[in-house]
C-alpha cells in the first residue's frame, strides 16, 4: 500500500531554509547510523575495489608496455576505471533501501510529514552515497599508489573529488527516481543488474577506445562513465594538467577536461529534473 501522491510542489527547491536542511540532515543521519551498525557493508565496499585493482591488474601484467597509453602500465590505467565504476555501483544501488522503505511503509512516515520538499529524501541519499564513494575513492587512490601507479597532484585530487561527486549525484538521482517509479524491488534490482555491467563494459573503464570496434567507440564516448574516467586518467598521467587539455579523442570530436566536467554537470541537471518530475507526479 505504497501508492502515494504528492501535490504539484513549487518546482524550486527551498535549498536555503533551515527546515530543509534539518530534514535533510536527519534523513542523512539515518543512513550513516545504519552504516555504522552494519559495518560489513562498508568493509565489502572497500575490499571489493581493491580486489578488482589487484586481479585486473594482474590479468594484464604482461601486456606489452605502452599499449594503454604512453608511459602507462595497466595498474595506472585501471585505477581511474576502478574509482569510477566503484562509485557508479554505489550510486546505482542508492534506490534500493528507498524502495524497501516504500514497500515496508517507512516512506509513508516521511510522506505524511510536512517536509519542505520531498527532494530532501533524494538529497539525503545523495549526500550519503557521495560520502561513501569519496571514502572508497581515497582508499583506491592510496592502494593504486602503493601498487606503483603514482598519484594525481593536489589540485588534481580536488578535481577527482569533483568528478566523482558529480557522477555519483547523477546516478543516485536516477536510481532514486526509479525507486519511486518502479512497481517493486524485484523490478528495480533486475534493472540495476541489467544496466550495471553493460555500462561499465561500454565505457573506457577496462580498455581504451583504441581497442574497440567503431560502434562501441561511439557508445563508449557517449557513456557518462567515460566522461568521468578519462579526465581522472588524464590527471593521473599529467602533473602539469590544465582544464583545456584534451582528455579523450572521441569519434565525434575532442573532449577537454573542462568539457567533460560540463557534460557531467549536465548529466546531473538532467537526472535531477527527471527525479523532480517523478516526485511531482506523485511517486506513483
Amino acid at each position: 500500500m505504497t501508492r502515494t501522491l504528492s501535490q504539484p510542489q513549487p518546482s524550486s527547491i527551498p535549498l536555503f531554509t533551515a527546515d530543509f536542511w534539518q530534514e535533510t540532515f536527519a534523513l542523512t543521519r539515518r543512513w550513516f547510523i545504519q552504516l555504522q551498525r552494519r559495518p560489513t557493508t562498508l568493509l565489502v565496499g572497500i575490499i571489493q575495489p581493491l580486489l578488482w585493482l589487484i586481479l585486473f591488474g594482474a590479468l594484464f601484467q604482461n601486456a606489452p608496455a605502452g599499449i594503454f597509453g604512453a608511459g602507462q602500465n595497466y595498474t595506472q590505467f585501471l585505477g581511474a576505471g576502478v574509482i569510477v565504476f566503484t562509485a557508479f555501483g554505489g550510486a546505482l544501488n542508492a534506490g534500493v533501501p528507498v524502495i524497501f522503505d516504500r514497500e515496508f511503509g517507512f516512506l509513508n512516515r516521511l510522506l505524511v510529514a510536512p517536509l519542505t520538499s520531498r527532494f530532501s529524501i533524494v538529497l539525503a541519499s545523495s549526500l550519503f552515497i557521495v560520502s561513501l564513494a569519496l571514502v572508497q575513492t581515497m582508499v583506491i587512490i592510496g592502494a593504486d599508489y602503493a601498487l606503483g601507479a603514482g598519484i594525481p597532484n593536489g589540485s588534481g585530487l580536488a578535481v577527482v573529488v569533483l568528478i566523482v561527486g558529480l557522477l555519483v549525484l547523477g546516478f543516485t538521482a536516477l536510481s532514486l527516481g526509479l525507486a519511486f517509479a518502479m512497481p517493486g524491488h524485484q523490478q528495480l534490482l533486475a534493472l540495476i543488474f541489467l544496466v550495471n555491467l553493460p555500462l561499465i563494459f561500454s565505457s573506457t573503464a577496462l580498455a581504451p577506445l583504441s581497442f574497440m570496434p567503431s560502434w562501441l567507440r561511439w557508445v563508449a564516448s557517449l557513456n557518462p562513465l567515460t566522461f568521468a574516467i578519462e579526465p581522472i586518467r588524464h590527471l593521473y598521467r599529467n602533473s602539469d594538467w590544465s582544464f583545456t587539455d584534451v582528455v579523450l579523442q572521441a569519434p565525434w570530436g575532442d573532449l577537454t577536461l573542462a568539457g567533460s566536467l560540463g557534460l557531467l554537470a549536465g548529466f546531473v541537471v538532467v537526472s535531477v529534473i527527471l527525479v523532480q518530475n517523478v516526485l511531482r507526479k506523485g511517486l506513483a
Binding site: 534539518q22 536527519a26 534523513l27 539515518r30 512516515r109 510529514a113 510536512p114 517536509l115
Partner: peptide, 12 residues
C-alpha cells in the same frame, strides 16, 4: 529514541 528524533526533525 533515534526514530523519535528523526520524527522530530521531519516536523522541524
Amino acid at each position: 529514541r533515534e526514530l523519535l528524533q528523526l520524527q522530530a526533525d521531519i516536523y522541524h
